[in-house]
Structure formats: structure tokens, C-alpha cells
Design a protein around this nucleic acid. Structure first.
Length: 591
RNA sequence: GGGGUCGUAGUUAAGUCGGUUAUAACGCCGGCCUGUCACGCCGGAGGCCGUGGGUUCGAGUCCCAUCGACCCCGCCA
């Protein structure tokens, strides 16, 4: 029976003891981080979420406690009572926040023992992810990851503070909801009482938040789990969290202002960083032209230049043929090209191959012209024009990709990031927000042979483009905007369609027949007929936001209990087989 | 669905051209040690080399398959 728990409360966190507490009696609870047994004196580093403090056991002063401490091992849980002592100057440990003091033990109690942990919890050792995920509760004892989870808690708290203050109302929406076409694959949940019918877990609360606008809540928000059954990446999980919001009687600028205010508040409150607002804006077109993608990392320049005109006139067949067939030629310039060897360039060729590029052409610029295998195909005039357009100087390296528009942008967009990382062009302290605006409403999918919504099917087209819905959908612009931070899309939203007829036209453009639209989205089309206010909103990916704020490399580092790339949980072993009885209850059979 | 990296004591890694008893560090166990803080010193235990098959006189090493983790492409309105 624990005397400390019943009679004494913990007085401090281990990590918070400071020189100012000297002379005080304290009660601490925590885990044994390390034990140093000198034969006589025993030192224990006691750890809790706030940090580590050194405990001293002297055999002459407290023989019983000292004897007990002899059997203590790593990760035992202790309660201790003792006095805070200032350490003599030569015994101060500057690497600990508590390094100026130590706690001299009066009483010691082992609250629980621990098996030897499967890995050392010091945060230094590299341990395989496999093991960390299996023993996640131990991994979460480590300082780095614990700090990430605590940061995440601050971010959600400050989000709520800001949005509540701005008059937003937190409304919960269903997790068991209706499967809808478009978008990602749904996670399905079978219904017991409706045999053969399924709920879907929401990919986002999109339609419910729009309905809340119809209901007149005016400003809604929610910090909410979303579910998408697609393949993982370093920054994707099957269940992830959105900061979701929606407002009525507003236009783009209202959403953007609110979002900027929220970001500035969160970054100030959680990281003490002052974010200058408004954030820079780029149109989708500009982003693709200059950075090759709609989530540009603007922490460094290294912009992509379009050389289609000049390259089309060159004697280099690879370029001129591509241009003749409607493709394009674009290039990147590295000022200090000498750092890349021939072998590096071959590797970069392989790299762009992943994006469908058939090769990476390159030349080195020197005082007299170019050197490189493709130099002979260019006359002095073309070389001069390209050098000028690129801003090339002696020592520069030019990297070209010639292909269809999409391949060129994909390949160079990715190469730009790859080179910036390889050549360390990125300042890790910078936080570069960028809005991307004027997205196309639709993209044509070759695999599906139809137009797909770039954003989602409830996004409002730009008003003057509405007539184009029937004549030229590819030209319709959407009233959509994404927020990009350091090359990561952390948020996206739009002004929604609030007229039933426009919504029907968009469904039609997407190839959704009237009957099908009725079956899948009838409730929305009905709602739009009952006085729907103009409205719009945005949703932020909380996990990605926190990931960047924490400087984490994987989304798993900011989620307490994440899943693997195969969407399994190594801790609980989910998903798992269920009994025949459970299946029978649900009228299900496995095949 | 496609491409890639990795898998060897509890952990992290080494292991040459296929060759005798598979190394090291940390951790663990035991002993010594009263100012350590990644304590130190001495000693010890610990291996289905992911799994299954094949080639070979002989496989951690070569081949095939398979499982798992991670990274990328496709996919993610």
C-alpha cells in the first residue's frame, strides 16, 4: 500500500525543480531513467513528462532506502520524498535543466517494477520503426515524441481559443454516414439492423458543415477525424485530423483573412513565431509555371524556366520534336554546377524517370559557351538566348526536361525539391506560407475518361465561367484556394455552390446522371432549395501542420498511435479476423 | 498495382571471393567501487543470421518465393 499516494501528494514535476526550491521538502513520482550505483552512493535520474532530476541515496543517512535502491532498475516507477539540495559548483550538470540541484532522499517507495525495456529510452539510439510501433507506449515515454504530442495539444487548444473568440461554433458531425461517389475510397461499416447496407466513415464532414450553414449556424468549426482508404505516404495516414470550418455570407477574402489570423495566432502562441500577414498568393497557373506543382516550397528560389520557344527552334531533335507535338521544354539553373558530378547527373536522370521523363539533358556553362553532350545541337544564338533567359553564368549547370506539359512540370517540380534538399538550399528555420488560388474546376482523367473535380464537386465555379460548364469544362475556374506551408499542402477550401441548379449542372459535368445524383446527393440538392446562404470554408490538415511545426519527418511522429504504411496497427494488431458469429450478425461472409 | 531500401544477440550495426568456433558497441546478469550524471573497473550469459524452398561437399553470404518495416510512383474529390 502506498503511503505517498494516500498521505502525500506529488508536489512537483521532476523536470521543474530549480535552484529556487533549495531547502524545500518535495514529493516526486516518476520513472527511473538511469541508475548509477557507485557502491556507496547511488544516483537515480528520475523522469516524468517535464524532465529529469537527480536523486541521491546515501547509505549512511538512509540505509533502508539505499538498500531498496539497490534492486531498482530502468523504468521502475518510484515515489520519493526528499529535500532539494544545491549542488556544489563543480558538480553542476549544465546539460540538465535541473542540473543545479539534486534531491536527497528521505523516503523511497517502489510503486511498480518494470521488465527491461526492449530498447533504450534515451532518444539517442536509432531503433527500428517496427519495434517502436509495437511498444508505442514506451516510445511515447521518449522526450522527442512526447514533446510533439504536447505541441499538438497546444495547437488544438489555441485553435479552439481563436475560433471560439471569433464566434465559431463547434458542432460534431456523424462518423457513421453515407458513402458518396467521388474522392477517395471509403472505409465501410456494415449495418447489423439493415442487412447488406453499409455506413461509410467520413472522408471529411463536407456536406454536414454545408447543411449547418443551411441551418443558420453561420460560423462552424470542428477538430475532427477523417478517414480515407488510400495508400500511405510519409505524410499520410488512413485516419487523420482536420481543423474544419465553414462560414456564411462571406467571400474568399473573409475565409483567407480568418485562416491567416488563425495561423498567426497558433504560431505565435505555440512556437512564439511572428507570422507576417497577409501571406503571399500565387495563382495555380503561376505555381505550376514557376515551381512545377501546386504546393510549391517557397523557402528557396531555384525556379523553373520555360524554354519551349527557343528549344523548339534548336537543332536538337529531342527538343524540337517534343515541341512540335505540343509538349514543352523547361529547365532549372544551378549557379554552382560543379558540385554535381557526372555520376550525380546520371542519378538525377533516374530520379526524373520516376515522373515519366525519358531523360534529363544537361549542359555546363563556361566563358565560351557550353560543354555537354547536347551542346553540339545548339548554335551560338540559341545558346545566348537560353543563357540570358536562365540567367546563366560561367560555372552554371542547366538541367532540361522535354516532354508533355504534365511530365515536364512533375519531373522538374520534384527535381527542384530534390536538389534543394541534396544541396541544402533550404533554411530549416523559415516558415513559408503561400496561398494558391484560381484552381481549375475540373481535370480530365484519362483512366476514367471523364472530368473529375479538382477540389470537390460542391466547389463553386467562378460566376462568369458558369456558361463554360456545358461548353468547355476544362476552362472553368473554381473559387477554391489551398494554403501551402513549406511545400506541403496544409489546407484547402472553397466557396461552395449554394444554388440547386448550379449544383445539378456540376454533377452533370462530372458525368453523374440525374437519377444517380438524386440517389447519392438528394439530401443536398433538397437542402439547397430551402434558403441556403452563400457560404464557404476551409479545412486544415492538423497532422501535417504539427509535423512541420515540430520539424518531424514523418506524420507518425505527431500521432500518438499511428498506423503503418499497410494501415495496420502493430500495437493492437488491428485489423484482425473476427468470429463467424460477428460476421453472421452483420449478414457478411468473407470470400 | 509498379519501383526501391532494409531485415544478423534485447538494441544498433560489422561480417571480404561461398570455407573452420558469426564479431563489436550499448543493454542485460554477477562482483568491486561514496560525487556520479552516457559513472568507472573486472567477469559472464546471450544467435532458428525474418520465414520457406533451391544450388553446393559446404550458405549469414548465391538463386527463387514469401512475410514485415520504411521511401517513391500510381492513388489520395
Amino acid at each position: 500500500m502506498s503511503e505517498f499516494i494516500t498521505e502525500d501528494k506529488r508536489t512537483h514535476y521532476c523536470g521543474n525543480i530549480r535552484a529556487g526550491h533549495a531547502g524545500e521538502d518535495v514529493v516526486l513520482m516518476g520513472w527511473v531513467h538511469r541508475r548509477r550505483d557507485l557502491g556507496g552512493l547511488i544516483f537515480i535520474d528520475l523522469r516524468d513528462r517535464e524532465g529529469i532530476v537527480q536523486i541521491v541515496l546515501d547509505p549512511e543517512k538512509k540505509p533502508q532506502a539505499h538498500a531498496l535502491a539497490h534492486d531498482i532498475r530502468s523504468e521502475f516507477v518510484l515515489a520519493i520524498k526528499g529535500r532539494v539540495n544545491l549542488r556544489p559548483a563543480d558538480m553542476i550538470n549544465p546539460s540538465l535543466k535541473t542540473g543545479e540541484v539534486e534531491v536527497v532522499i528521505d523516503e523511497l517507495e517502489i510503486l511498480n517494477e518494470s521488465d527491461t525495456p526492449p530498447f533504450v529510452l534515451d532518444g539517442e539510439t536509432d531503433v527500428s520503426e517496427n519495434l517502436l510501433l509495437k511498444y508505442r507506449y514506451l516510445d511515447l515515454r521518449r522526450k522527442g515524441i512526447q514533446q510533439n504530442i504536447i505541441l499538438r495539444s497546444k495547437v488544438t487548444a489555441e485553435t479552439r481559443t481563436y475560433l471560439q473568440r471569433e464566434g465559431f461554433i463547434d458542432v460534431e458531425t456523424p462518423f457513421l454516414t453515407k458513402s458518396t461517389p467521388e474522392g477517395a475510397r471509403d472505409y465501410l461499416v456494415p449495418s447489423r439492423v439493415s442487412p447488406g447496407a453499409f455506413y461509410a466513415l467520413p472522408q471529411s464532414p463536407q456536406l454536414f458543415k454545408q447543411l449547418l450553414m443551411v441551418s443558420g449556424f453561420d460560423k462552424y468549426y470542428q477538430i475532427v477525424k477523417c478517414f480515407r482508404d488510400e495508400d500511405m505516404r510519409a505524410d499520410r495516414q488512413p485516419e487523420f485530423t482536420q481543423i474544419d470550418m465553414e462560414m456564411s455570407f462571406i467571400s474568399e477574402s473573409d475565409i483567407i483573412n480568418t485562416a491567416e489570423g488563425m495561423m498567426a495566432h497558433i504560431f505565435k502562441a505555440c512556437l512564439d513565431r511572428d507570422m507576417r500577414v497577409p501571406f503571399p498568393r500565387l495563382t495555380y497557373r503561376e505555381a505550376i509555371d514557376r515551381y512545377g506543382r501546386d504546393n510549391p516550397d517557397t523557402r528557396f528560389s531555384l525556379e523553373i524556366e520555360d524554354l519551349t520557344d527557343i528549344a523548339g527552334r534548336s537543332g536538337f531533335r529531342v527538343f524540337s520534336e517534343v515541341v512540335k507535338n505540343g509538349g514543352m521544354v523547361k529547365a532549372l539553373l544551378l549557379t554552382d554546377g560543379k558540385t554535381l558530378s557526372r555520376k550525380d547527373l546520371d542519378a538525377l536522370g533516374d530520379f526524373v524517370g520516376q515522373y515519366g521523363a525519358k531523360g534529363l539533358a544537361w549542359v555546363r556553362v563556361n566563358k565560351d559557351g557550353w560543354t555537354g553532350s547536347i551542346e553540339k545541337f545548339f548554335d551560338q544564338g540559341n545558346i545566348k538566348s537560353i543563357n540570358e533567359k536562365m540567367g546563366a553564368q560561367p560555372g552554371s549547370l542547366l538541367l532540361f526536361v522535354a516532354d508533355t506539359k504534365d511530365v515536364v512540370n512533375d519531373a522538374l517540380g520534384a527535381l527542384r525539391i530534390h536538389l534543394a534538399e541534396k544541396l541544402e538550399l533550404i533554411d530549416r528555420e523559415t516558415l513559408a506560407f503561400t496561398w494558391i488560388t484560381e484552381f481549375p474546376m475540373f481535370e480530365y482523367s484519362k483512366t476514367e475518361e471523364r472530368y473529375m473535380a479538382t477540389h470537390h464537386p460542391f466547389t463553386s465555379p467562378v460566376t462568369q465561367d458558369i456558361p463554360l460548364l456545358e461548353t468547355n469544362p476544362g476552362k472553368v475556374r473554381a473559387r477554391a484556394y489551398d494554403l501551402v506551408l513549406n511545400g506541403s499542402e496544409i489546407g484547402g477550401g472553397s466557396i461552395r455552390i449554394h444554388k440547386s441548379d448550379v449544383q445539378s449542372m456540376v454533377f452533370k459535368t462530372l458525368g453523374l446522371g440525374e437519377d444517380e445524383a438524386r440517389t447519392k446527393f438528394g439530401f443536398l440538392l433538397d437542402a439547397l432549395k430551402y434558403g441556403t446562404p452563400p457560404h464557404g470554408g476551409i479545412a486544415f490538415g492538423l497532422d501535417r501542420m504539427v509535423m512541420i511545426m515540430a520539424g518531424a519527418e514523418s506524420i507518425r511522429d505527431v500521432i500518438a498511435f499511428p498506423k503503418t504504411l499497410k494501415a495496420t496497427c502493430l500495437l493492437t494488431d488491428a485489423p484482425s479476423k473476427v468470429s463467424a458469429e460477428q460476421l453472421a450478425d452483420l449478414s457478411l461472409k468473407t470470400i
